[in-house]
């Protein structure tokens, strides 16, 4: 069973009187434990696609199946639970909760989403902060961190829930070049350690090279699929 499959997925947006066809028929299958990137010009539909895969939005037509579950028709409560159980999110703007410390940000999903008991929780968080190299910053607030550090915390927050799939829309867009590489490198390493699939969307041709499979999108369609031989080997 594949982790993710999209069958003839279309998405229309109604902007005033005009209908924008953001996705025009996407067919796609993703296996477990892959590191995948979507590239393409602005407006090609990357974010739209990630939103559908992440059960944040519903397709106009077609079916999206994640971890064997057809997610098209879920209600709000069910899809929130489904996301909590299966999907991790990493955002372009990091989106940490400003009133919580690094530790508490990573703790948040274990309390508010998954309800993990204190002892197990503490162990998981300590372990995760270690892996992303943020253990010594655990009591800082997000405003006291650099962009790269924030994104590390965000990665920890996504992975602490043991998701089957992590989605990252432009995770490096707000980071400088070196930091971007490091963050992608960290994601790649996490993918290996947890055997979790990562899907990220980006403009940045340089960091795309880190992906195992690269999907190129143009105007709402996937126009090219590349398997990348150098994947994981080129981290600077």
């Amino acid at each position: 069973m594949s982790l993710l499959s999209l069958a003839d997925v279309r998405k229309d947006y109604l902007a005033g009187d005009v209908t924008v066809q953001a996705l025009k028929g996407i067919n796609l299958t993703v296996e477990k434990g892959k590191f995948i990137s979507f590239v393409g010009p602005s407006g090609s539909g990357k974010t739209t696609l990630l939103n559908l895969v992440g059960c944040l939005d519903k397709p106009t037509e077609g079916t999206v199946t994640v971890a064997g579950v057809e997610v098209n028709r879920m209600d709000r409560k069910t899809s929130a639970k489904f996301r909590g159980d299966n999907i991790g999110f990493i955002f372009q703007n990091f989106n940490l909760i400003p009133v919580l410390t690094v530790y508490e940000n990573v703790e948040y999903p274990l309390i508010m989403v998954q309800d993990i008991a204190l002892k197990a929780r503490k162990q998981k968080i300590d372990d995760m902060l270690d892996r992303v190299g943020m253990a010594d910053q655990r009591n800082k607030y997000p405003s006291q961190l650099s962009g790269g550090q924030k994104q590390r915390v965000a990665i920890a927050r996504a992975l602490v829930m043991d998701p089957k799939l992590v989605l990252a829309d432009e995770p490096t867009a707000n980071l400088d070049h070196d930091t971007a590489y490091k963050v992608i490198g960290l994601m790649h390493q996490m993918k290996k350690e947890f055997n979790t699939s990562f899907i990220f969307a980006t403009h940045d041709q340089k960091i795309v090279g880190e992906a195992e499979i690269i999907y190129t999108m143009e105007d709402g369609l996937i126009t090219k699929v590349q398997a990348n031989g150098t994947a994981g080997g080129g981290i600077k």
């Binding site: 409560k77 929130a80 999110f89 989106n95 989403v113």
Partner: peptide, 16 residues
């Protein structure tokens, strides 16, 4: 609103 979007995305149930 942005924060609400974040916590909703990562799976916080509407009741919480």
């Amino acid at each position: 609103i942005g924060e609400i979007g974040t916590i909703a995305s990562i799976g916080t149930p509407p009741s919480k």
